[in-house]
Amino acid sequence: MEIRNLSKSYQVAGRRLDVLKHLNMKTDDRGITVVLGRSGCGKTTLLRLIARLEPADEGEILWEGSGKLGVIFQEPRLMPWLTAGDNILFGAGRKEQEKQEKLERLLKLTGLEGFEDAYPAQLSGGMQQRAALARALASDPDYLLMDEPFAALDYFTRRQMQKELLEVWRKEQKGVLFVTHSIEEALALGTKILILDGGVCRKEYDLTGYPYPRDLLDGDMIAIRKDIIEHIEEREETTL
């Protein structure tokens, strides 16, 4: 997926707020592209533009896939009146036989076996987020967009979910665009990391060569982490 010259601004309290300013970037379509940036830098805005939930002011999003995206929002956004199973199959098409097979496979993949008849209110936060992941996968998307899906989870659950995401990615062979503000998460997951700051893509790192699971205390990882922090903080100094 390639993004060219993408701009988006909002009117906030009577003033124009430029969130994305002629953003150019390219994702790794087989791997996990992580967009990393501080809170409020426009990550959610970027995903909403890609998911066509909002129109861009300018620029284009080029992509060769079939156009089928799976979106996982910052919150699970499950339908409270449907069971976990029906939620997972929400966008899965009509064929009953196929749906049943799909449900079984996805329940196993996301570790929700035995909970297909539970309502969202009866699931924990992590389980809801896994159901949302399964729901996105059930529509057979070519590409997954994930907006800080694990930000609301505690450390241990988050680690667990990251592991599961890597597992899903390996089995399903789908490209993933993952948005986060956590450097650790970016380093643990990304095959490519893009730093979004001030409305543009400031820097990119290629991590294809590093196998999973990654040791974040490894020398290279520490070096990359330092470099990322420097890039984000350096801009902070120049703008101040």
């Binding site: 939930l53 929002f73 919150e75 956004r77 929400f90």
Partner: peptide
């Protein structure tokens, strides 16, 4: 609105969104 966006993301038409999201929300 957040649930409606889920419908949009799955490519539901306006009518489908009405039947599958707005109505259950309103019941």
């Amino acid at each position: 609105r957040k649930l409606l966006e889920v419908g949009t993301v799955f490519g539901l038409s306006r009518w489908q969104r009405f039947c599958r999201i707005v109505v259950p929300c309103a019941i």
